[in-house]
Simulated assay, not measured.
Amino acid sequence: MDHFSLAWTALRTAVAALDDEDYERPSGCAGWLVRDLVCHLVIDAQDVLITLVTPADTEPTADATSYWRPAAAPPSGDDPLAALIPRLAAAYGDPRLLAFHLDDVGSAAGRAAVLADPAARVGTQDMVLTTADYLTAYVLEWTLHHLDLIVDLPSAAGPPAATLAASRTALERIAGAPFPASFSDRDVLLIGTGRRPASAAQRAALGGLDARLPLILG
């Protein structure tokens, strides 16, 4: 849960540091500008708030690893919510309004996470998880989106080393195998999720794991 707060604070700080023109840059999410990604983060923050106040009284059906169900193919863009994001982001007009909304809702989500009982059970997406497992799963979400945010901003601050390492561990658990030790944590996340192609040498180092990639996380 500490990693959740660290990853979320770093991501929101990176958004707060954006200049207005940065919102029109491409993000690491195919087809989305930075402004679209930031709008998605607002919805993610709302989801966190909703889930933390949606108690469940049954045994957990998932944990921080099984929460992630890799898709067979990249998103086509036909999903109604995904298609809504660019239109909603554009409707803000002034990017500072979008940044304000993220700071407002995002701060609330961060506070709710700190106050949550780690052992409590919550329901989301037809799953029941402990709060600790739910927030742990989101460390990977925040870290990947932090990398998406700065893909065209080379001077921007990246995710903290601790959350990169935690996210690598999470992705290796989802993959069911470790990535080569020669891969940096950032390489693991970008290559493992299909955000960047592996070089010939990296593919050779991956061995049989290469056939299982990319892990397309929704």
Rank of each mutant, 00 (worst) to 15 (best):
G176S: 05
P214N: 06
S155F: 13
R96D: 11
Q125S: 15
D47W: 13
I191W: 02
R186H: 12
R69F: 00
S76W: 10
H40Q: 10
L209P: 08
G158W: 12
A157H: 12
P74D: 09
A198G: 10
P197V: 05
R121M: 07
P214Y: 07
L52E: 02
E59A: 13
A73L: 11
L213A: 08
A64H: 13
P180N: 13
D19G: 02
S76M: 08
D152P: 02
V188N: 08
T143M: 09
I43V: 14
W142D: 03
A7M: 05
S182N: 09
A120N: 10
A156V: 09
R35K: 11
A89Q: 07
A83P: 15
D20S: 05
D78T: 13
L189E: 06
V151G: 01
F179L: 06
T9Q: 14
D94R: 11
A205M: 03
R203P: 01
Y23L: 11
L153P: 06
L37E: 10
T130S: 15
D187V: 02
I85E: 11
D148N: 03
I150F: 11
D22T: 05
R121K: 15
V128L: 14
P55Q: 13
G31T: 04
A211G: 06
A177K: 07
V53C: 12
Y23H: 14
A30L: 02
R186P: 03
A71F: 04
A91Y: 01
E59M: 07
G31N: 05
A7W: 06
A90F: 04
T131A: 14
A99K: 08
A72W: 06
V42G: 01
L102R: 00
A170Y: 02
W142N: 09
R212H: 12
D103E: 15
A30V: 08
L149P: 04
A112N: 04
D185W: 06
P80C: 13
L84M: 15
A14H: 02
D44I: 12
A90G: 07
G176T: 04
A71H: 10
P70W: 05
A113W: 12
D210F: 14
E59G: 03
S199H: 06
A14Q: 03
G31W: 08
A181K: 13
T136N: 10
R186V: 14
S184T: 15
L213I: 09
L140G: 01
H40D: 06
Q125C: 14
L189G: 10
G208K: 07
T169E: 12
L147D: 03
G123D: 10
S167R: 09
L97D: 12
F179Y: 13
P26V: 08
S66I: 02
G208M: 05
L190E: 07
W68G: 00
A181Q: 12
L153A: 03
F4Q: 01
A83T: 14
D22R: 06
D103G: 09
L102H: 01
E172K: 12
A156P: 01
I150D: 01
A165T: 08
L164S: 04
R195S: 04
G31Y: 05
I85L: 13
V48A: 09
V188P: 15
T131E: 01
A204Y: 08
A73Q: 14
L98S: 01
R25S: 05
A83R: 15
A91D: 13
R195T: 02
